[in-house]
Every structure is written in structure tokens, then in C-alpha cells.
Amino acid sequence: MACWRGWVAVAGAAGVAWAQEAPAVKDGASPSSAIVLRAVPKVEVGAPTETSSAEEAMAWLLTRGLARTKGQVEVAGRILDAASLEEPSNARWLFGRALVLRTNGQRTAAREMMERAVKIEPESAAHQFWYGTMIFESINDAPTLKKMGLADTAMEALEKSLKLDPEQPMARYSMAQFYINAPGIAGGSLRKAREQAKMLFAMKEGKGEFLGHLVLALAAAEDGAWKEMGEEFEAAETAGGEGADPRASLLGHIDCLLRKKEDPKAALALIERYAAVADSTDDRPHVLLGEARRMMKDYAGAVGPFAKAVEMNGKSKTAVWGLAESAEKTGDVERAIGQYRAYAAAWPEDERAGKAKWAAERLERKRK
């Protein structure tokens, strides 16, 4: 299993192709299942109102680190829908509508909208990059037989984007992530991923440094080279360049320790460090602590963090499942039934939905 599947998304495509869970907006909060790093400067942009321009709505959608409520996204959507209706051949407004759909978790619809934008304006490096990104984000929603073709189309879009503008760290990083996460039969290659890292380090003004270290860290994790993995994540914490964020590096390191190395004890110190710098609205410190304790079979210790995470963000699959399992292990049957049922209801297509439904029914029979 590749690490960093659901915790960190760079331009939304960190878990490229095979496993990324795209977060959807919920009332009153921004998505919290991933840190999203975008290729835009850190600037203050106000939430759109009914009198905002389409360009103002676009700027807000493209600005990193903003809390976005469902209502605000709906306003942006109305503005961009109106602009697109007035100028149907304007690819920028189609791009904006695709971003709205993406923010709402409508991955396939976002990809299809972005495809329309690319057809109108194929020579835009930004549009080709986002088209490739949105394909990768939605690929798990496609029928199995279509996935290979979609992956090829996404790589072609990223390659064209880099041909149009070679100095794009995010596009280079997304290609590296594909090579790391894809099976060999589908084009996966750690050698090619490391080649992308070299090109990131070679970019002007060090703007690919941070992402280059992340690529090397993730490639090392796939190789089981734990010392090298740790060194690269630590280097990323202090690196500069596009998307540089020590919290993102910490999250990636933690996730690789949990998912890839399966070493929750080693992850605990990093989780404590992350909790110290995380925003008060961020549920991830609680999710990660609960997951580490669950992996250590400390189910009593996992209940509290998972419960807090569910309270903060009921759309966290890891937290809902972890709370259900931990509650069952500690004898809290009522809570376990409630969380298993909540999981099955919220994610009926998920591979664990059937298990959750069966577990709830089993516990109800046992209770009788």
C-alpha cells in the first residue's frame, strides 16, 4: 500500500490515480481529510458574495488554505455559471465551474467540465495541469476497463502542461506521484519518480526543492528505505519552494509510518509535533492519534481521539470506522452499532460498507 493516500493532496492529486479520496465540502467547514497545496501565492482573498465578479470567485477558489463553507461555494458556483452562460466559449469560466464541482466532491463531473475547457483552450499549461489532476482524482470512480485509458490521458495532459511551461513544480510532482503509486504494469516506476525529483531540484530559484524532497521520501518509503525516508521528510520540513509547508511534510511522514512501515509507536512523537502546530479546526491530530492507538491495540485509548475527530468532521472515514471498531473492542455496543451504521449510510459504495452493515447487524443480534 502506498503511503500518503488520504492525508495530503498536492493540487488534489497526491494520491494519484489509485487511491486518493477527494474531500467534499460540508456546511460550516473546509475539507479536513487533506492539506491541499496549490500553485498559487499565499494572499488574502475574501469569500465571494452575490456582487463579486467571476474573476474574484476564481481567485477565491484558487487560493490555498482558505476555509470554505457550502454556502460560499454555492455563491461562487452561481457567479461562474452566470459568466459561462454569458460567454459559453470562455474556457476560464468552465475551469471555474470545474473547480466548484471539485470542491463539492463531484469528481467525475469536474473532470468532464475541465475537459470542455481544455478542448476550447488546449494551449493553456494551467488548464492541461488541472485536467490531468482532475482525471487522477476521479479515476477510481470509473469502470475498471476505463482506468488505464484515463491514466494515459492524464499523463498526456501533464506532459503537455510541462511542455508548455517546464517550470511547474506541481505538474512535475503529480507525474512523480503517478510513477510511485501506479502498478508497474500501468507504468509505475520508482526510477522515473526519482528522475522527476531531479528535475524538481533543478528548477530555477529552488522552487521545486520542497516537492523534490517529498518525492524522494515517498519513493524511499516504497523501497522500505526507512532511514532515507525520514531524512527526506525532515529535509522537506525546512525546504523552500512552491507549496513549502512543514505541516505537509509532517503529515506525509506520519502517514508513511502508519500505512507503509506500520510503526505506530514511531509515529506518536510526530503526531504530537503536528498537533502542536495544527489549526484548532483541524481534526487530523485526533484521527492520527486514534489510528496509532488502534494499530497498537490500545482501543480504550483510541476511542477518545476518534470520538473528537467524528465530532469535528463526521465525513472522516478513518475516524468513523476507527470509532466503531474501538467502541466494539471496549464493549460499547451502542456506540459501535451507531458508528457502523453511520459508515454504511455515508459511504454505501465503499468496500467496507458491507462489513460495517454486517457488523451492526451482528452486534444487534448479540445485544438481543
Results as ranks from 00 to 15, higher is better:
residue 9 A to C: 06
residue 127 H to N: 08
residue 23 P to A: 15
residue 229 M to R: 10
residue 186 A to R: 09
residue 169 P to M: 07
residue 308 K to R: 02
residue 53 S to A: 05
residue 74 E to P: 01
residue 239 A to V: 06
residue 35 I to K: 09
residue 111 R to D: 03
residue 41 P to D: 05
residue 345 A to M: 06
residue 257 L to H: 03
residue 207 K to M: 11
residue 350 D to A: 12
residue 359 A to V: 07
residue 108 T to L: 12
residue 322 G to W: 05
residue 314 G to D: 14
residue 89 S to Q: 07
residue 194 R to T: 12
residue 156 E to Q: 06
residue 32 S to P: 05
residue 106 Q to F: 11
residue 219 A to L: 00
residue 316 S to L: 13
residue 81 D to H: 07
residue 69 T to Y: 00
residue 364 E to L: 14
residue 260 K to Y: 01
residue 42 K to H: 07
residue 228 E to F: 02
residue 59 A to N: 06
residue 207 K to G: 04
residue 366 K to C: 00
residue 132 G to K: 10
residue 207 K to V: 12
residue 298 D to C: 09
residue 211 L to I: 02
residue 85 L to R: 14
residue 145 L to C: 00
residue 349 E to K: 11
residue 299 Y to H: 14
residue 306 F to Q: 01
residue 31 P to K: 07
residue 305 P to D: 01
residue 216 L to C: 10
residue 318 T to Q: 11
residue 325 E to D: 13
residue 6 G to Q: 14
residue 50 E to G: 09
residue 296 M to R: 13
residue 38 R to L: 13
residue 356 A to L: 11
residue 59 A to G: 05
residue 275 A to G: 09
residue 221 A to C: 07
residue 320 V to L: 01
residue 92 R to E: 08
residue 189 S to F: 01
residue 46 G to P: 08
residue 272 E to C: 05
residue 290 G to L: 15
residue 51 T to C: 02
residue 279 D to Q: 15
residue 320 V to G: 12
residue 21 E to V: 15
residue 315 K to W: 08
residue 348 P to F: 04
residue 359 A to T: 03
residue 61 L to S: 11
residue 5 R to Q: 10
residue 221 A to L: 14
residue 189 S to L: 07
residue 324 A to W: 04
residue 271 I to H: 04
residue 188 G to H: 08
residue 199 M to P: 00
residue 298 D to V: 08
residue 146 K to R: 10
residue 34 A to K: 14
residue 206 G to T: 12
residue 86 E to N: 04
residue 185 I to W: 02
residue 304 G to Q: 06
residue 201 F to T: 01
residue 123 E to M: 09
residue 260 K to R: 12
residue 75 V to M: 04
residue 63 T to V: 09
residue 77 G to A: 01
residue 25 V to M: 15
residue 124 S to P: 06
residue 356 A to H: 14
residue 322 G to Y: 03
residue 309 A to F: 01
residue 18 W to N: 11
residue 23 P to K: 15
residue 311 E to K: 07
residue 15 G to F: 00
residue 345 A to V: 08
residue 10 V to R: 13
residue 130 W to I: 12
residue 98 A to V: 09
residue 201 F to Q: 00
residue 36 V to C: 02
residue 33 S to K: 15
residue 93 W to R: 10
residue 355 K to V: 08
residue 143 P to E: 04
residue 171 A to N: 02
